[in-house]
Design a protein around this nucleic acid. Structure first.
Length: 474
RNA sequence: GGUCCCAUCGUCUAGCCCGGCCUAGGACGUCGCCCUCUCAAGGCGAAAACACGGGUUCGAAUCCCGUUGGGACCA
């Protein structure tokens, strides 16, 4: 295989749901891989067994599949590669590139607290670095013998060169005293062995990068290129988290967002291509470049995501939305909806997608076309189903019942006749009819409503409404 | 506290690298008008930003320095 092949990875820790910040990182990696006809790898960083769960792994994979972020290799799991990490450490130890450290976590913590108290930078003092004889009876961690002078420069594609003084970096722990490998070790071993060409990750890892570079050096590996993407912030400019609202990709699915809307939104958060706002997946792939990524952090804006979602709902094939609506969003509200003819679902989608911004909202507005009977909202009924309009409604019911063909032109004639006979304007007639038929004051055009319900339900709901109105009869 | 990153409308951004075309463009949101059987959608229009201070230069949003503010990591 050519050494020029782009190989990138998304490496989430399965300690929670698939976070939308993670989705953006995954998307940038995926776009970069597709753009360069490279390889996208999914790697599960599950070495922290106390916090990793199978449930999280399933959630991550399900989320990735929902979004269409398909991977070429993996999912690999770090817990299946522990031998690799240990072997690398053994090798380093044998070469003198690492050493045993006998300091206990408690001692280190005490020294750190002491340093902080003296307003000094807490940093490992390297006291075990030159120890010749092992201390018997003490658990040992393994540390990297890192350079203590000079500088380490991270050549970041997004930020340019970032310089670190080696004197500021301490000898990082490779293996803890309980034998478990640390994050930096695993990442470097995996990225090297998986021949990752570009590490595209959150900039919360920028500070880890010089240490990782030391590790690449120690192992004799050529380091990859780095691109550190800034964080996604909440409205208060703090890192986006649960307290800012939904952060799980799959929760956005439940809220009725389309995957292409989320992807388009996340792509434009930190990346741009001129003034373009709407990108198909293929356009994103064609135009994506790491150099165009904005180095500054971005605030997550739910309103814009919502706008994009409504845009994509209007763009999508009605049949696709109809299946989604019926089999997912409606079915979870009313299982009987599964038996709805797909043509009916298509009609509902066509009538509602201009006025609802999510699939969940569409489902809520669809219920009155799914259920056999409805109970109008009390406030709407009180305002529009009044004795004053009762004669007109009765007249309309009569005329609609007598229509030989229940189509829009005929319905139109009936409405015109009722308006003329009762001296009513369209608004005065349509609103009561709307409330009688849908139970609320907001709906698609009244003729669309008639079509969606069909003659039987129209007549029965009009009758029910008429019966509910007190006062004069007929 | 130390290290590192960042800084254009409320928000996402174009412009910045290669100073003049910038009386700073687009988008979301907001407001107004039009359309209208409701709500939307759609159309038209408006308000709204170069964090601050010094340089460099004929000229700086664009280059340099500092300040301030925010963020991340060490934890």
């Amino acid at each position: 295989m050519s050494t020029n092949t782009v190989r990138v990875r998304f490496a989430p820790s399965p300690t929670g749901h698939l976070h939308i910040g993670g989705v953006r990182t995954a998307l940038f990696n995926w776009l970069f891989a597709r753009r360069h006809k490279g390889v996208f790898i999914l790697r599960i960083e599950d070495t922290d067994t106390s916090r990793s769960t199978e449930e999280s792994i399933h959630g991550i994979i399900e989320g990735m599949k929902w979004l269409g972020l398909d991977w070429n290799e993996g999912p690999f799991r770090q817990t299946e590669r522990l031998d690799q990490y240990r072997a690398h450490v053994e090798r380093l130890l044998a070469q003198g590139g690492a050493y045993h450290c006998y300091c206990s976590a408690e001692e280190l913590e005490a020294r750190r607290a002491e340093a902080l108290a003296k307003k000094q930078t807490p940093k490992y003092d390297g006291r075990c670095r030159t120890r010749k004889e092992p201390l018997p009876g003490r658990a040992t961690a393994v540390r990297l013998k890192a350079p203590q002078t000079g500088q380490t420069v991270v050549h970041d594609i997004i930020r340019g060169d970032v310089v670190f003084e080696n004197s500021q970096l301490d000898d990082l722990i490779l293996l803890r005293s309980d034998g478990t490998p640390t994050y930096n070790l695993c990442v470097v071993v995996d990225d090297a062995e998986m021949r990752i060409s570009h590490v595209i990750r959150g900039d919360d890892h920028l500070n880890n990068t010089p240490r990782q570079l030391h590790l690449y050096d120690a192992f004799g590996y050529e380091p990859p290129q780095f691109a550190h993407v800034s964080m996604i912030l909440g409205p208060d400019k703090a890192r986006l988290s649960k307290r800012h609202g939904a952060t799980s990709a799959l929760v956005y699915r439940e809220m009725g967002y389309l995957p292409e809307a989320l992807l388009n939104y996340l792509a434009r958060l930190g990346w741009s291509s001129g003034d373009q706002e709407i990108f198909s997946l293929q356009e994103m792939i064609d135009k994506f470049s790491l150099e165009q990524i904005n180095p500054s952090a971005a605030v997550f804006n739910p309103d814009k995501l919502l706008w994009l979602n409504s845009h994509y709902m209007k763009e999508a094939a009605p049949e696709r939305l109809a299946h989604l609506l019926r089999d997912h969003y409606l079915a979870e509200r009313e299982p009987a909806a599964r038996s709805m003819p797909i043509e009916q679902a298509v009609k509902i989608v066509t009538a509602l997608r201009e006025r609802t911004k999510t699939m969940a909202e569409m489902a809520d507005f669809s219920m009155c076309y799914v259920e056999e009977e409805i109970n109008p909202e009390p406030a709407a009924a009180a305002k529009f189903l009044t004795p004053a309009v009762k004669p007109a409604l009765a007249d309309l019911a009569q005329r609609l019942a007598e229509l030989p063909v229940f189509d829009e032109p005929s319905q139109h004639v009936a409405f015109e006749a009722v308006m003329a006979a009762h001296q009513l304007k369209m608004a005065q007639l349509a609103q009561p009819v709307r409330v009688a038929l849908t139970g609320r004051t907001v709906s698609p055009g009244i003729y669309d409503v008639l079509q969606l319900l069909g003659k039987d339900r129209v007549l029965s709901r009009l009758k029910k409404a008429l019966d509910s109105i007190g006062g004069q009869t007929g």
